[in-house]
Amino acid sequence: MKAHNGMRPHDIVILLKIIEKQKGWLSKEISEELKISPSEISESLNRSSISGLLSPDKKKVMKSAFLSFLQYGLRYVFPVEPGPIERGIPTGHSADILKDYFISEETYVWPSRKGKAKGQSIAPLYPNQIFAVEQHKKLYDMLALVDAIRIGKVRECEKSMEILQKLFENNYA
Results as ranks from 00 to 15, higher is better:
D96T: 13
N170Q: 04
N5W: 11
R47V: 11
V61R: 00
G119T: 09
K118F: 11
I130N: 04
P84D: 15
G24D: 04
F78R: 03
V61H: 03
G92I: 06
G83D: 10
L26S: 14
V77M: 03
S49G: 03
A117N: 11
M7T: 08
E105P: 01
S112Q: 08
K35M: 13
T91R: 06
P111R: 15
S44K: 10
L167R: 11
K28A: 12
P38F: 10
P124K: 07
E169S: 13
G73V: 06
G88D: 02
F131W: 14
I50H: 08
I85N: 10
R75G: 03
R87C: 02
E86A: 00
M7W: 00
Q135P: 03
R8K: 15
I18H: 05
K23N: 12
S31E: 02
I163M: 02
I149K: 04
L26P: 05
L67P: 00
K28Y: 13
R47C: 04
Q22I: 12
R150P: 05
N171G: 01
L167P: 02
W25M: 00
E134T: 01
E20M: 13
I12D: 04
M161I: 15
Q135L: 12
E156D: 11
Y126N: 09
R113E: 12
L74K: 09
G6E: 14
I30A: 01
W110C: 05
C157S: 11
I163W: 08
H4K: 11
I50F: 12
W110L: 08
I30C: 04
L45G: 07
I103S: 14
H10I: 00
L143F: 04
S94D: 08
H10Q: 15
N170T: 05
P127V: 05
V13H: 05
A123L: 14
S42D: 09
I151A: 06
S31N: 02
L125C: 04
L15C: 10
K63E: 15
L53W: 02
I19H: 01
I130P: 05
S55Y: 10
S39T: 15
Y108N: 00
P90W: 00
V109A: 06
P124E: 10
